[in-house]
Amino acid sequence: MKENEIKNQKDDNFLLYIPIKKHEEWEIRGNKVYLIFHHNKPVERFMRWLVKKPSVSDIELDKIGSKTWQLIDGNRTVHEIGQELLNAFGESCEPVYERLIMFLRYLNRKGWIYYKKSQ
C-alpha cells in the first residue's frame, strides 16, 4: 500500500463518525424508547385495509438500544456513545463497539439515521 492510502484508512475510522437521527417520531415509555411509524402511503393503506392492521405502529428498543437512541444527538461520535454505554451498563454490554456498530448499521440500513464525519 502507498503511504497516503494508509493515511486515508486511518482518517476513515468509523468510531469517529457522528450518527444523526432521520426518524423524528419516537417516545419514551417507562425506560424504553419506542419508534413510531405512520402507515399512510397508498400501498400501506391498501395493505392495512386488506389485513386489518392499525395505521400507526411502533418498535420497542431494548435497554441498550434505548440508551443508544437517546445518546444519538448529532454531536457525539460512535466512540463517545460507546463510552457512555460502558459507563451506564458496565461489562453487561461487552463487546460494546461490535454491538454498537452492528446496531447503528441496522438503523442506517432502515433509513432511521445517517452519519457525518467528525471534524
Rank of each mutant, 00 (worst) to 15 (best):
L71K: 10
G90H: 05
V43C: 02
D58Q: 12
Y106W: 15
N31M: 02
P19G: 12
K32G: 00
K10I: 15
I64D: 01
L15V: 03
I101W: 00
L104E: 01
E80A: 13
H23K: 14
K10Q: 14
K2V: 07
F103T: 04
I6Q: 12
G82Y: 00
I64H: 03
R109P: 00
D62G: 11
Y115C: 11
Y97E: 05
E60I: 04
E27L: 08
K117G: 08
Y115N: 10
Y97P: 02
H38C: 06
D73A: 06
H23W: 11
S118W: 10
K63W: 01
F103K: 03
N13R: 13
Y17I: 05
Y115G: 10
V96K: 02
Y34Q: 03
W112Q: 03
L35I: 13
R45L: 15
W112S: 02
F14P: 07
F37R: 06
K67V: 00
E84L: 03
K10P: 07
F89A: 03
R105W: 11
M102R: 14
K110E: 13
P19H: 07
E91M: 11
I72S: 00
W69P: 09
V43T: 08
G82W: 00
G82T: 00
Y34H: 08
G65N: 05
N8Y: 12
F89E: 03
W26C: 06
L86V: 10
N40M: 14
E60S: 07
Y17N: 15
M47W: 08
K41V: 09
V96G: 01
K10D: 11
K21W: 02
Y106S: 15
Q119H: 15
S92H: 02
N13Y: 09
S55P: 07
Y17C: 11
F89L: 06
S118T: 14
I81S: 01
G111N: 03
D62L: 05
I113C: 03
I72F: 01
N108Q: 09
K116N: 09
A88L: 10
L85E: 00
R29M: 06
K10E: 15
D62V: 00
P95I: 04
F37H: 09
E94F: 06
I72C: 01
N8A: 13
V33M: 04
N108Y: 07
N31K: 04
Q9I: 15
L35Q: 06
F46S: 05
F46G: 03
V96L: 04
E24K: 14
N31H: 04
S57L: 05
A88I: 10
V56G: 09
I20R: 12
G65W: 01
K7I: 13
I18F: 07
E27D: 12
N108W: 05
F89I: 05
T77N: 08
P54L: 07
R99K: 11
N8G: 08
G111I: 08
K10M: 15
D12E: 13
V33Y: 05
E84S: 03
V43I: 08
